[in-house]
Amino acid sequence: MSDERTDVATSTTAGTGPAQVARASAQHVPWAAVAVFAITSCGLAWLVAAPLWIRGQGMSDPLLLVFAVVMMFTPAIATIAALLVERRQLGRRGVRVILRELGMWPLRPARRPVGITVAAIIAMPLLVAAGLLVVGLLGLAEFDLVGFSGFAAQVGADVPAGALAPPVGLLVALQLVTIPIAAIINAPFAFGEEVGWRGWLLPALRPLGTWPALLVSGAFWGFWHTPLILLGYNFGLTDVTGVLLMISSCALLGILLGWTRLRTGSVWPAVFGHGAFNASAGMGALLVAAGSPIPAAWIAGPLGLIMCGVFAAASVILVLVGQFRRERLDARLG
């Protein structure tokens, strides 16, 4: 009995709460809590997006961004609902234990989560740039990396007649350099999602195995976007094809964000990585040449088929360099 108590105490001190101890020891997914999480997150997503459907303006609705941002906080609410179910099953838990379970606090040792957070902020725009490189190599679009003619034409159209436009090269440089700042600005909104997907759901599914947990949590993340995808969001597709593509792209991107959670035990690298990806999504508009063909978003967009290939390639690289070996992943997540 004393050994069992010692094991539980040690696990809690290391960052694992009673919920994770139960999951790891019994290899049991808390399906009741997962069901509550799934129903709550998707139900609230549809509730938030309902005005967009009722107003009938689709992607041209001026309030689209507002509702999309509000929707980002529904997984956080679903996480609270899931924790309440777990609390009833596993007894009372303090706030500090719950924060540890969600990977929010404490950051000990801090070097790894901080380092991987910085790496994620840098890596996400590089992944988007890699996708644009593939687009160019395939001849789907032309890019102007010197005069930025496409962006210059856009700026010229937006500047009032007679006004002096700043140098377009300077504007592009500022846009690219400030991506890390934009990642920080985006972080509170990304947190509303990541505390659900990588903070709670990924560890909850971990008894299924590392790869099933990564793929299922990422696929559900994609499915959760359905109310917006069916309006044409991201891909311009308003049928099940867009939903399936979103599920696929989020499952693959979710491997990368999920790896940061498993590698560090912290949700913050995924939060800032998510924020950096959102900040990088418009990079193509800065680099495209004037008069270039514009490929369909479902092919060459930031979550299109080409980027799916980039995410998959990055995941393969992580596997090949041993980043998914059991001893490298955080044992505190089961």
Score class of each variant (00 low, 15 high):
residue 251 A to M: 15
residue 62 P to E: 06
residue 222 G to W: 02
residue 172 V to Q: 04
residue 115 G to H: 07
residue 88 R to S: 11
residue 26 A to T: 15
residue 225 H to V: 12
residue 113 P to S: 03
residue 80 I to R: 05
residue 62 P to S: 11
residue 130 A to P: 06
residue 9 A to F: 04
residue 64 L to V: 07
residue 165 A to H: 05
residue 233 Y to K: 10
residue 1 M to G: 11
residue 247 I to S: 05
residue 159 V to K: 03
residue 111 R to P: 00
residue 133 L to G: 15
residue 333 L to S: 01
residue 300 A to F: 02
residue 118 V to C: 10
residue 324 F to S: 09
residue 168 V to S: 06
residue 209 G to D: 09
residue 110 A to D: 00
residue 71 M to V: 03
residue 64 L to D: 00
residue 176 L to Y: 06
residue 38 A to K: 01
residue 139 G to A: 10
residue 276 A to T: 03
residue 258 G to L: 02
residue 276 A to Q: 02
residue 22 A to E: 14
residue 331 A to S: 14
residue 18 P to T: 12
residue 62 P to T: 12
residue 289 A to P: 07
residue 266 S to G: 06
residue 41 S to F: 12
residue 105 W to F: 14
residue 180 P to R: 04
residue 247 I to N: 04
residue 150 G to L: 07
residue 165 A to P: 09
residue 41 S to Y: 08
residue 198 R to C: 09
residue 246 M to C: 12
residue 98 I to S: 03
residue 137 L to A: 15
residue 297 A to I: 01
residue 199 G to Q: 02
residue 118 V to P: 03
residue 165 A to F: 06
residue 113 P to Y: 05
residue 8 V to A: 14
residue 141 A to I: 08
residue 212 P to V: 09
residue 288 V to G: 00
residue 167 P to E: 12
residue 255 I to A: 08
residue 185 I to K: 03
residue 236 G to T: 10
residue 135 V to W: 02
residue 124 M to Y: 05
residue 188 P to T: 10
residue 132 L to W: 01
residue 305 L to Q: 00
residue 64 L to G: 06
residue 167 P to Y: 03
residue 52 L to K: 10
residue 148 F to R: 04
residue 237 L to T: 11
residue 226 T to Q: 10
residue 225 H to F: 11
residue 60 S to V: 00
residue 316 V to M: 05
residue 152 A to R: 13
residue 145 L to H: 13
residue 12 T to K: 11
residue 331 A to V: 13
residue 262 L to D: 08
residue 86 E to C: 13
residue 252 L to S: 07
residue 130 A to E: 03
residue 314 A to S: 12
residue 222 G to Q: 04
residue 22 A to Y: 14
residue 303 L to T: 13
residue 99 L to S: 04
residue 233 Y to T: 01
residue 273 G to L: 01
residue 87 R to P: 00
residue 317 I to W: 12
residue 187 A to T: 06
residue 219 A to T: 06
residue 233 Y to V: 02
residue 206 R to I: 00
residue 239 D to I: 12
residue 184 I to G: 08
residue 15 G to E: 03
residue 13 T to D: 12
residue 311 F to W: 14
residue 271 V to E: 05
residue 39 I to V: 15
residue 147 G to Y: 06
residue 288 V to K: 02
residue 123 A to R: 01
residue 251 A to F: 09
residue 241 T to V: 11
residue 137 L to C: 12
residue 26 A to K: 15
residue 128 V to P: 01
residue 276 A to H: 02
residue 236 G to S: 11
residue 299 I to G: 00
residue 36 V to P: 04
residue 183 A to P: 05
residue 284 G to E: 10
residue 192 G to M: 06
residue 285 A to L: 13
residue 178 T to E: 08
residue 101 E to M: 05
residue 26 A to L: 15
residue 91 G to S: 07
residue 317 I to P: 00
residue 301 G to A: 10
residue 85 V to F: 08
residue 44 L to G: 05
residue 15 G to P: 05
residue 205 L to F: 11
residue 166 P to M: 07
residue 40 T to N: 01
residue 168 V to L: 08
residue 172 V to D: 04
residue 196 G to V: 07
residue 288 V to I: 15
residue 270 A to G: 14
residue 84 L to G: 13
residue 184 I to A: 15
residue 25 S to R: 15
residue 215 L to F: 14
residue 295 P to L: 03
residue 79 T to D: 03
residue 267 V to W: 02
residue 220 F to Q: 00
residue 269 P to F: 09
